[in-house]
C-alpha cells in the first residue's frame, strides 16, 4: 500500500503533495482545537498499535501479501480529524525513519490512507453506527482499505505504470480480500477493547447528519469507481465518449481554459501536466467544499 519514491511521476506526486500535506495540516489544527490532553496516551497507543499492525504482512492470494492499514480502527476510536493526524504521523515516521513509503510520495500516501482511508471509514460508520454498530465497524474497515487501495492504483496508472486489464482485476481481487480481512479484524479489536474499556468506544455519532454522510459516501464510491473504470478500460471511456459524440465537446471544454497557457508555457511536458493536474484537483476540492457548505447551510436553516 505504501508507494515508494521513484514510482510515481512528478506530475502525480507534486500536485498530491501540494494538496494532501496542507490538508493534513488542516486536520492537525482541527484536531488540536478542543483536544483534551488526557486523550494523548490513547492517541499515542492507538498510533503505535496501527504502526505495529502495518508491519504484520499476511498472505492474500497466490504469492502476494498485504498488511493491515488501521485507518478504520483509528477513526472509530478517535474520530476523523485525530485519526487523520495519527495516520499522517505514522506515514511520516515510516517514510523518514523506516524508508517504508517515499518522502516525495508522502502526499500520495497521506491522501490514500490518512485522508481517503479515514473518510471512507468515517462516512459508513457515521451512517450506520446508530442502528447496526458491528456492521458499521465492518463497513468502515472494508471500505477504508478498498478506497485507499483504489486511489493508489489510480495514482500508479496516472504515473504510467502499465496496467493490463488482467492485472487490474488481479489487484482488485487482492484488495477485496485484504479489505474483508481488515473489516473483520477491526470488528474483533473494537469489540475486544469495548469489553475491557467500554468508555473508550462509546458511540459518538450524531444521527441527524446521516443523510449527508450517505450522500458523501456515495460520491466517494462513485469517484473511486470512476477512477477504477478509467484504469481498467483506459480506452473504453474515450470510445464511449466518441460514440455519444460527447468527446469533442468535452475536449473543447477541458482544453479551452488551459490552451492559451499551454501555448505560452514552453516548458517540459511534465510541467504542463502538473499545472493541469493541480488545477483539476483544486477545482474538484473547491466543488466538494462548496457542496459541503451548501449542505451545512441548508441543514442549519
Amino acid at each position: 500500500m505504501h508507494i515508494p519514491d521513484g514510482v510515481l511521476a512528478p506530475s502525480v506526486w507534486l500536485p498530491l503533495d501540494a494538496i494532501a500535506l496542507p490538508a493534513a495540516g488542516y486536520a492537525a489544527r482541527r484536531a488540536r482545537r478542543g483536544f483534551d490532553d488526557s486523550r494523548v496516551p490513547l492517541l499515542g497507543v492507538m498510533g503505535a498499535f496501527v504502526f505495529a499492525a502495518q508491519m504484520i504482512n499476511f498472505p492474500v492470494a497466490a504469492g502476494t501479501s498485504d498488511h493491515l492499514v488501521g485507518g478504520a480502527l483509528l477513526t472509530v476510536m478517535l474520530g476523523p480529524a485525530p485519526a487523520s493526524v495519527v495516520m499522517t504521523a505514522i506515514l511520516a515516521i515510516q517514510a523518514l525513519i523506516f524508508q517504508d513509503g517515499g518522502i516525495l510520495a508522502l502526499g500520495a500516501n497521506v491522501l490514500n490512507m490518512a485522508l481517503i482511508g479515514v473518510l471512507a471509514a468515517w462516512l459508513p460508520y457515521r451512517a450506520l453506527a446508530g442502528t447496526a454498530r458491528r456492521a458499521a465497524v465492518f463497513a468502515a474497515g472494508t471500505l477504508s482499505v478498498f478506497c485507499a487501495a483504489l486511489a493508489a492504483l489510480i495514482e500508479l496508472r496516472l504515473s504510467g505504470v502499465p496496467m493490463p486489464q488482467s492485472a487490474v482485476f488481479a489487484a482488485l481481487g487482492v484488495f477485496a480480500v485484504t479489505a474483508l480481512i481488515e473489516g473483520s479484524v477491526t470488528v474483533a479489536v473494537v469489540a475486544g477493547i469495548g469489553r475491557l474499556s467500554p468508555k473508550l468506544v462509546e458511540n459518538r455519532t450524531e444521527p441527524r447528519r446521516r443523510a449527508l454522510a450517505v450522500v458523501a459516501l456515495a460520491a466517494l464510491l462513485l469517484a473511486t469507481a470512476g477512477g477504477l473504470a478509467a484504469c481498467a478500460w483506459p480506452d473504453g471511456l474515450d470510445s464511449l465518449l466518441e460514440s455519444t459524440g460527447a468527446a469533442g465537446h468535452a475536449r473543447t471544454l477541458i482544453a479551452a481554459p488551459l490552451a492559451d497557457y499551454q501555448a505560452r508555457i514552453s516548458g517540459a511536458l511534465w510541467l504542463r501536466k502538473v499545472i493541469a493536474g493541480a488545477a483539476g484537483v483544486a477545482l474538484a476540492a473547491a466543488a466538494v467544499f462548496a457542496l459541503g457548505r451548501l449542505a451545512a447551510r441548508r441543514r442549519s436553516a
Partner: peptide, 19 residues
C-alpha cells in the same frame, strides 16, 4: 509542520516502545 503533528509523532514514537 504543525506543532500538534510533531507532538503526535513524538508520542507515537515513544509509545511504540511501550507497546
Amino acid at each position: 509542520v504543525p506543532r500538534f503533528l510533531i507532538d503526535v509523532i513524538q508520542y507515537l514514537y515513544r509509545y511504540l516502545f511501550v507497546v
